[in-house]
């Protein structure tokens, strides 16, 4: 799980061009949307694409993302349970 969380943080920083956020500053429980890491609605859509592309998880309802993208810890747990690749 720790490896997955680290991989997720690296992917999120790269995919969303978060050049001003370092891995050291990126806590497992930091809120991804809104305050915290500060992702916006377009970033959330990009994360939905990332879930599909990297882990074979297709979200049928984009609203699901709000719960899944709460923080890296929640996201990693969801991926570990639902990944198909």
């Amino acid at each position: 799980m720790e490896n997955l969380k680290l991989e997720l943080k690296k992917n999120i920083i790269e995919v969303l061009n978060l050049e001003d956020i370092s891995l050291e500053d990126f806590g497992d429980k930091d809120s991804l949307l809104g305050d915290g890491i500060g992702l916006d609605s377009i970033d959330a859509l990009e994360l939905i694409v990332m879930l599909d592309k990297d882990y074979g998880i297709r979200l049928s309802d984009p609203k699901e993302g709000k719960k899944i993208f709460e923080n890296v810890e929640v996201m990693a747990a969801y991926i570990a349970e639902h990944r198909t690749k």
Binding site: L45, E46, V49
Partner: peptide, 9 residues
Amino acid sequence: YYPSPAVFV
């Protein structure tokens, strides 16, 4: 086929 929303905007 993975269209990027962040690029599309």
